[in-house]
């Protein structure tokens, strides 16, 4: 213990090291010499008020309300882990306790009426990278949907494009585009019908809506299709009548492809 009790009054300055000039190298610190030779007590004091003593600990007790708060917090922590801990299993990702203890087996979703425009607008998020939010495409690279002839044309052609993609040169609004459109067969019938409905009714397009049943029928009819369509094959398809829509799987007519 090298500390001694000291007045805590900050008005009374702690003496500093200036008494020990011998420790210093006067060449490095010319001020020290000056101070030593100076009779000016004020100058001396200025150096002394430099620093307080080393910090010490006080002993105020921990407030009880704080401890109560902490115990409450720890209680909440335990409850939260028990409720949302997912049983500490590596294959449980949903923290909702209801999911963990739910019986296996799906919940039968009641068939609800679907707003195809709303579904379509969301699904169109997949398309905006090329066709853009305003449907104008990128001139010279990706064709527009706004005002395009095929978009307002026979809907089964659109379903066919979405299901299998498109490859090679096509004519849109008098311009030639030579590129690839990926297939979107992984989307559901409802989503494909939605997105077709959306593009047919957005911007300056005013074509009627398309039912998921048509997409379903088209999916069945073109099941044998291996690759993407070409522009010529689409023109041929457009001249054919749309597939018959039935609730059961329609008898498969041989798809005419390239």
């Amino acid at each position: 213990m090298s500390e001694t009790p000291k007045p805590t009054n900050p008005e009374v300055p702690t003496p500093d090291t200036n008494k020990y000039e011998g420790l210093r190298n006067p060449a490095l610190h010319p001020t020290d010499v000056e101070i030593r030779n100076s009779p000016d007590v004020l100058a001396m004091h200025q150096q002394i008020i430099r620093e307080m003593s080393e910090p010490k600990d006080g002993v105020a007790p921990t407030p009880v309300w704080l401890l109560m708060f902490f115990f409450a917090l720890i209680g909440w922590g335990g409850y939260y882990i028990a409720q949302h801990g997912g049983g500490f299993r590596a294959d449980v990702y949903n923290e909702n306790p209801a999911v963990l203890y739910r019986q296996a087996g799906g919940t039968a979703d009641a068939a609800k009426p679907v707003d195809l425009m709303a579904v379509g607008k969301r699904t169109f998020n997949n398309c905006t990278q090329c066709h853009q939010v305003n449907g104008a495409g990128i001139p010279g690279a990706f064709p527009p949907l706004d005002g395009a002839e095929r978009v307002s044309g026979p809907p089964h052609v659109l379903a066919a494009i979405l299901l299998h993609g498109l490859h090679g040169p096509i004519q849109v609004k008098g311009q030639t585009f030579n590129g690839d459109m990926p297939a979107w067969g992984q989307l559901s019938d409802e989503e494909i019908a939605g997105v077709i409905t959306y593009v047919r009714a957005s911007w300056s397009n005013k074509a009627p809506e398309v039912s998921p049943a048509l997409v379903k029928a088209m999916r069945t009819q073109t099941a044998a299709q291996a690759g993407p369509w070409t522009g010529a094959a689409l023109d041929a398809l457009a001249k054919e009548p749309p597939p018959a829509i039935e609730s059961e799987a329609a008898p498969v007519t041989e798809a005419k492809t390239n």
Binding site: Q129, C130, I138, A141, F142, G179, D180, M181, P182
Partner: peptide, 16 residues
């Protein structure tokens, strides 16, 4: 899946 899109976008994203 369009490589063309990816190339154009990487070259200058504002194109696409």
């Amino acid at each position: 899946p369009s490589r063309t899109w990816q190339y154009l976008h990487l070259y200058n994203p504002v194109i696409t």
